[in-house]
Design a protein around this nucleic acid. Sequence first.
DNA 1: GTCTATAGGAAGATAGAC
DNA 2: GTCTATCTTCCTATAGAC
Lengths: 203, 203
Amino acid sequence: MGEKLKTKELILTVATEVFHNKGYTGARMQEIADLAQVNKAALHYYFNSKQQLFEVILLNSFKNLFISFENLAVKKLPILDKIDFLIDEYSAFVRKKIQIIKFILSEVDKNLPLIQTNIKMISLENSFIDRMYNEFDREMKLGNIKMINPRHLLTNIISMCIFPFIAKPVIMEINKFSTDEINAFLDEREKYIKQFVHNALKI
Amino acid sequence: MGEKLKTKELILTVATEVFHNKGYTGARMQEIADLAQVNKAALHYYFNSKQQLFEVILLNSFKNLFISFENLAVKKLPILDKIDFLIDEYSAFVRKKIQIIKFILSEVDKNLPLIQTNIKMISLENSFIDRMYNEFDREMKLGNIKMINPRHLLTNIISMCIFPFIAKPVIMEINKFSTDEINAFLDEREKYIKQFVHNALKI
DNA sequence: GTCTATAGGAAGATAGAC
DNA sequence: GTCTATCTTCCTATAGAC
């Protein structure tokens, strides 16, 4: 039984890799079987169909992304320092999980009902997001930062942290960057995002 | 001869639609033929292979996106008003071209050499982007707005305008928005992006 | 230039031996 | 539980008639 669980998890691991890299329509059951060093029949034995295997992986990926997000350490810091900390955490997160983020963004549209019916399993009571909104609200009312809709503030920060990594090759072409230059540009972004957000929020 | 050109362009039009919606691996030559009301053989007669048809469409799409970007009206306005104008233009642009933007972002990675060898055909001398950078520089030196690396400033603005539309369903789930709520949220974003950028740049 | 017919192969899925 | 062999369907591409 130990061995059996191992096989199923091995398939899931390599299938995750393949789906993340190729997307649903680009993924091939044969490639997954080869990488897992099992036969195609084993894939169907454990997961019934490509669609069902994919759904397991999409939901896992979505949950992982959510949980990573939720588990961002929330140190007790002055609000602007905390925002700096968040920008560092988001940026590190994006660098590490860029492939999953791209996968989710490209597949989520066609599978929204699936995600919506399964999302409730993820506890979202008093979530990290809600706590951030509350904290933004409190600090604004205390007069520590400028007034701004907290949801748009967080959306702005996340957009600035994630989008350039998704659009890396396009930004590269627009700016006529070499490979070294685009990488240096992405590396220095945290500094400029922090500066930008500070300027936007400081009273 | 008139009719022949028409057929080729008809195929190109419907193929563009299909590739934009399904991506390369999801697109089917049969579907393109059906929508164009021609036979599959006609597709190969005009474009030789799926790959070559795709490459024509990817390059066209990339050029169109570039050109739309370049052709943004550059009215003579005070810098902060001009930035407001740009945010409006970018947002309208994203709303109209979201499908192309997603297509480019998902396909550009695997086809970077193709794009790089063909990008030179697009004139980029004294481009819109470069003129914006120069204008940002000038206004900063004049003391009209705060100092910030112009490339990061433009990247910040574009990220805030585009990313929420790409991540629409994810933002919807994170915020527990209904369909109406997420649409209202996206509609009101321009206002908050402008406010945010103003706060970040005003001396 | 456009069609029918079909080649040739790859894909997902299943039956049945072990 | 894992395999080989095979089915069926689908896909890209081509040959050849008109």
